[in-house]
Design a protein around this nucleic acid. Sequence first.
RNA 1: GUGACCGUAGUUCAAAGGUAGAGCCCCAGAUUGUGAUUCUGGUUGUUGCGGGUUCGAAUCCCGUCGGUCACCCCA
Length: 427
Amino acid sequence: MASFQTVKGFRDFYPEDCALRNHIFDVWRSVARRYGFIEYEAPVVESTDLYKKKSGDEITGQLFCFKDKKGRDISLRPEVTPSLARMATARQRHYGKPMKWFQIGSCFRYEEPQKGRTREFNQFNADIIGDASPAADAELVALAIDVMLALGMKKDDFVIRLSDRRLWSHFLEEQKIDADKTAAFLQVIDKMEKVPESVTAEKLEGIGLTLAQVRAFIDGASEAHAVFAPLRENLSARGLWEYVKIDPGIVRGLAYYTGAVFEVFDLKHGLRAVAGGGRYDNLCGLLGGTEMPCTGFAMGDVVLGEMLKQTPGAQFAITDGLLKAFALDVYVVVADETARSHALAAVHELRRAGIRADYAFGAQKVGKQFQAAEERKARFAVIFGAEFPTVKVKNLTARSESPVSSAHLVTTLQQMLQAPDVGPLIA
RNA sequence: GUGACCGUAGUUCAAAGGUAGAGCCCCAGAUUGUGAUUCUGGUUGUUGCGGGUUCGAAUCCCGUCGGUCACCCCA
């Protein structure tokens, strides 16, 4: 038993776990680039004030905060949006609009770990800065859908639940409810699905509304509502509207969203939201920068990982990713120790040519070396023995072997690796 | 922050107050130039940690640290 345990809520990434994580990162990165997003990164540690300013003092309970050696109050980032707002406003004149930026990295929240929640997690953030049009919101919804599809999800595995904060501000205006009750009201809506009706009704009465009024409004807010028209038109043109479900109950916890909001939900395993985001046109100004319209979303690796493991459609992509992480192209077998220096030279040359090659450090039985080649999922073995400068190249899946002059080894293997791997021949 | 359950070999799990064990994995050999199977042998423990009860604790009690799950919260 090891003397040390991981710090509560933090994870070890053994090679298998790391391969899954990297597979997720690869998909995030490649789809975002396909959409013309550009990668950036922000500090993992920021002044605690940056987060207090955005969300209020009471938020420090969930912040991973501490004093540094000079007594400065700093925090591990719980999210990246405040850093992005700072960076974007500071240099916004240097970048043409709209700025389509994405980021991948770890975030930290000091909370009790449970299903789908750890204290350290990786997030994919995609944001569009400097564009107030619904086309920008639609672009992000489309990106979120394509990320899910690229991960191997099918249409019936997930849904985008779409809403708009303006629906509710109009509603409250019509009902002549004070604007300062908005936050409390949205909290009630956010929890409606979970808490008993009676509790919801009671809280609504405290605000000056009835449950029936709210219910009627939710039922009336169909796809046809004018506020969704531009998004529906945009996403329909891409054939993506079928992934979207209008759901006014989605309001997204905290107060800074100003327009469209959406979440990505798993449909089959009762997990919490996989991703969420929306339009936040006031945040840059709130943090003391230039006022700029912004919209964006974040997707975390923890819930997503749970979902991938439980979704059959994603399995192939996962095992493929594992294979990519582990597999060698070539294993060099030293059958005769007098040939070791020639073998070492060949390994080096293969590696310089971009071929993944490995070998045994010391003298080992040939059988053992083949076993190692098998374990590392090598496609080919090259046997260096007494017949050098001739070597044997063995196709480990087909189990066929042929002699090759060592002078032509690299070019021969490059050609052989080009050919598709047909798998074992059936006898 | 609150509560429930859990923690034994690298791993999965036995041992229900009386000598800490098994499967798998790993290592070596059978097998001196070819991957499988099989067989043989081998390593591995302060039972998470600390205290208490007891003649005696993996087992019961208290604390603590981790894990899992739920509440709170969810940017």
